[in-house]
């Protein structure tokens, strides 16, 4: 739901263009630096990073123990660190427990392992309701949890960021770390899939 849109309102695309002109003319931004930021988050920093962390945890019990005890350091071992990743806590799903992460105040998200947040994570529907009726919201998003699975919702209201360690899928005993990486989705690592 959004409020009715004022027809005189200038589009954000045109206002972004205007702001970039104003700042560039005065030497306050360098469009090449902007291009680099955009390219980094379009190409380099995304959920594949988190998937590598998860697949390693699925195949290496010592890494898994380090990841759960001190997430930030274990994630950094794989080379992933940076803005919105000062302190990352990893939440372990089990057969009896499901974790799901939100940020009701803005849309805080663990950028170094998941990249920038997807549209549903930033949507008022998710931010407002996942902390009030998570089982209903998850079902609307396609994840039906049986009643005896405990649900924990995490509202990222400080600089701590959360990453869900999903359950390793059944039947993947012989899979390599690389094959497992391909099975891990962004939605599993936020907790809207399992």
């Amino acid at each position: 739901m959004t409020s009715s849109i004022n027809p005189d309102r200038l589009s954000p695309a045109l206002r972004t263009e205007a702001l970039e002109q104003l700042l560039t003319e005065r030497g306050l931004v360098d469009p090449a630096v902007m291009d680099k930021f955009i390219s980094t988050y379009e190409n380099d920093v995304g959920p594949l990073n988190g998937a590598k962390v998860v697949a390693k945890a699925w195949t290496d019990p010592e890494y898994r123990a380090r990841l759960l005890a001190e997430g930030t350091g274990a994630i950094k071992e794989l080379g992933f660190a940076g803005p919105q990743g000062e302190h990352i806590v990893v939440l372990e799903n089990t057969a009896a427990l499901h974790n799901v992460v939100t940020c009701t105040l803005c849309s805080c998200y663990p950028w170094p392992v998941l990249g920038l947040p997807p549209s549903w994570y930033k949507d008022p529907v998710y931010r407002a309701r996942i902390v009030r009726e998570p089982r209903t919201v998850l079902a609307e998003m396609g994840l039906e949890l049986v009643a005896d699975v405990e649900v924990k919702v995490w509202d990222s209201s400080s600089e701590v960021r959360y990453l869900v360690l999903p359950l390793r899928p059944a039947g993947t005993e012989g899979a390599s770390e690389e094959e497992l990486t391909a099975l891990v989705t962004r939605d599993m690592m936020v907790g809207v899939a399992r």
Binding site: M1, P12, A13, T16, E17, E20, M34, I38, Y41, E42, G46, T104, L105, G115, L116, P118, S119, W120, D123, P124, V125, Y126, R127, A128, R129, V131, R132, V137, E140, M141, G142, D155, D187, V192, A193
Partner: peptide, 27 residues
């Protein structure tokens, strides 16, 4: 926003959503 009413239903996440749906968003 936490706990507020009136936002409607959630829907299934889109797979392979672009990081920036339109180029101005990246800028």
């Amino acid at each position: 926003m936490g706990g507020t009413d009136g936002w409607g239903r959630a829907s299934a996440p889109t797979l392979d959503e672009p990081v920036f749906a339109e180029s101005w968003e990246g800028r």
